[in-house]
Amino acid sequence: MKFSHQILIDLPREEVINKMEDPANYKHWQRGFISYKHLSGLQGEEGSRSILKYQMGKREISMVETILKRVYPKKFHATYEAPGVFNIQKNYFEEEPENKTMWIADSEFQFSGFMKLIGTFMPGSFKKQSLQFMQDFKSFAEEGKSVLHN
């Protein structure tokens, strides 16, 4: 399943990237975020791997992030692997007039096992969650609003 979202952020591109790349900020815009642990490679650089943990409903989900491409400040591509789900995430950050940034996120989800059923019958939930992360990041970056206070 492939889809794309975009959102205009009322901040300069460099500020957007700085807020997005800091793992200390993840809890403020990624609902259910529990922890981040660097595994290998130079943190934040191509080839590095990290474990991200999330609370999703009653389940705790761990996923491995592998950074594929990082061309600062224009693009960031990574994969996210969790049981039954493989996500290729390609993010692009375009400078817009008046110090704004267009964030374009191209997502591709591949499913296996039980998650194939979820992906087939509930594709909207993955699209909705991806868009929610983007909207929450925009609120955090522009206004300092944290999802921790919802």
Rank of each mutant, 00 (worst) to 15 (best):
H77I: 13
N150V: 04
S35F: 06
I17V: 11
Q43V: 10
Y80E: 09
G84P: 04
F133Q: 12
Y26P: 06
E45Y: 14
D10H: 09
H38N: 14
I88V: 07
K2D: 11
F137E: 00
H149V: 12
F114W: 12
S107D: 11
I7P: 06
E96P: 09
E142F: 01
T79S: 10
F137R: 00
N99V: 12
V64G: 09
T66F: 04
P23Q: 02
V16H: 00
K27R: 11
I118V: 14
M102Y: 11
N91C: 09
P123H: 13
N25Q: 04
K69G: 13
G41D: 00
V147T: 05
L11T: 03
P97F: 03
A141K: 00
Q89I: 03
F86Q: 08
L52F: 03
E81Q: 09
L39K: 09
Q110G: 03
S112E: 08
L11N: 04
K145R: 13
E96L: 11
K145W: 02
K19G: 07
L11G: 00
F140R: 01
K145G: 06
I88T: 13
E15F: 09
L11C: 09
F114R: 11
L39I: 15
K2C: 12
I7F: 07
S107T: 12
Y36W: 12
H5A: 10
V64P: 07
Q6N: 08
Q89V: 15
M115K: 03
E65Y: 13
P12Q: 09
L11W: 01
G113R: 10
A82P: 03
A78L: 14
K27E: 06
K90N: 05
I7N: 00
K128T: 12
K69T: 10
M20D: 07
E143M: 07
E46L: 12
Y54R: 09
F93L: 01
M122I: 13
K53G: 14
A78I: 10
S40V: 11
G124F: 01
Q135Y: 07
N150G: 15
G47P: 05
Q135T: 02
S62P: 05
M56D: 13
K127R: 13
T66R: 01
G84W: 03
A82D: 04
T120F: 11
Q6C: 14
A141E: 01
K138A: 09
T66Y: 02
